[in-house]
Simulated scan of single mutants.
Amino acid sequence: MGCEVVAGLDEALSILQNKARRSILERLVREPHYPLQLADQIGISQQAVMKHLKLLESAGFVVKMKAASNKGGPPKNIYSVQQAISIRIDLGPDLFQCSQRILPAGGPLKLSNRLKGDVVKVAEIVSGRKKIGVGEGAHHLSAISEAIEKLDYERDALIALHQQIKQRVSSTVDSDFDSYEQRLVIHNILESPRSNFNFKEFARELQLGAEASERLMDEVRSRVVRQLAERSGQFIAGSQTIELPWWAALGIDPKGSP
């Protein structure tokens, strides 16, 4: 077995866009397959299957092992899935999120520490057991699928709410910020409000010099403060050198008052 390689998001998307490779993975997650088996089931040549498997292996999606031949011949390569990931794409007006998450490792008991509700009991029941009957397994999988559907239902609503808020903010940004660069600064902040905005990296991407970068940031600060003052009905004063806290840029009162 080779060393583990985790494909990046762009590489993963590039690999999974191919229908034949998705068909290969769909079969390999069930049980290991020989290349000839895959060729017969998918309906493409063994040479094409080997080409896809080589790409999947280099990206860490699958791993090959030597398996003894039932007919007494030399061992043959057999392939199985190695990488466990989740790829999420949310797309719509004022909405684009694309991320890849590595699924947590560990047995059922360890995973139960990250779970809530009835599925915790499922994890506890199957913990330490190497084999589970088909009937019992179907029952547990049904409970987990139901829990996932509930989470997805709530997540869909949260994503839609995120989109609705972003649309309302975008209309304000369009009216209050004149230049494309100003609006881009605000949108970058809004897309990751819990992270520090790397303005130096942003300026480098736009190929802005030091003077232009400083002028752009001053303009954004001035407009955000003015917007905050207009909407709060209060005067806000400060020197030009004062650092604008990002809770102010987002229009949030740190005291929690309306």
Rank of each mutant, 00 (worst) to 15 (best):
L38T: 10
Y79D: 15
F96R: 12
L95D: 06
G256P: 04
T172P: 00
S45G: 05
V225S: 04
E191L: 02
G8I: 05
E4Q: 04
I252E: 07
S222L: 07
S175H: 07
K255L: 13
V119A: 09
S145H: 09
R168S: 11
R155M: 14
G209K: 00
S112Q: 05
S23V: 08
Q234S: 06
S195L: 00
E219L: 07
M50R: 11
I165Q: 13
T172V: 04
D152H: 12
R168G: 04
G256S: 08
Q227Y: 07
A237S: 10
K121I: 12
L151T: 07
L9R: 14
V120N: 01
E181R: 04
E201Q: 06
E243L: 07
P193Y: 02
F96T: 09
A143E: 10
S145Q: 10
F61S: 08
A212E: 13
R101F: 11
V6F: 02
D94L: 03
P254N: 03
G73R: 06
G133V: 09
L184S: 13
S179K: 04
L13K: 14
Q46L: 05
C3I: 14
K66C: 15
S257V: 15
L158E: 08
S195R: 00
L55N: 07
R101Y: 11
R223S: 05
G43V: 03
A59N: 10
A12K: 09
H140R: 04
C98I: 13
F235C: 02
L56M: 14
L38Q: 06
H187F: 08
D94K: 09
I24W: 13
L151M: 08
E136S: 01
G92L: 02
A138M: 15
K255M: 09
N70D: 01
P104S: 13
D174K: 12
D156C: 14
I24C: 14
Q164I: 12
R30H: 14
K130F: 08
E136M: 02
R194L: 11
S14M: 03
Q164P: 08
P93E: 15
G60D: 02
R168M: 10
E201S: 06
E201L: 11
I189K: 00
R101T: 12
L115H: 02
Y79I: 15
A160H: 04
I102N: 00
A157V: 11
Q182S: 01
R114K: 01
E124V: 13
Q234C: 08
L95G: 08
Q234L: 10
R226A: 05
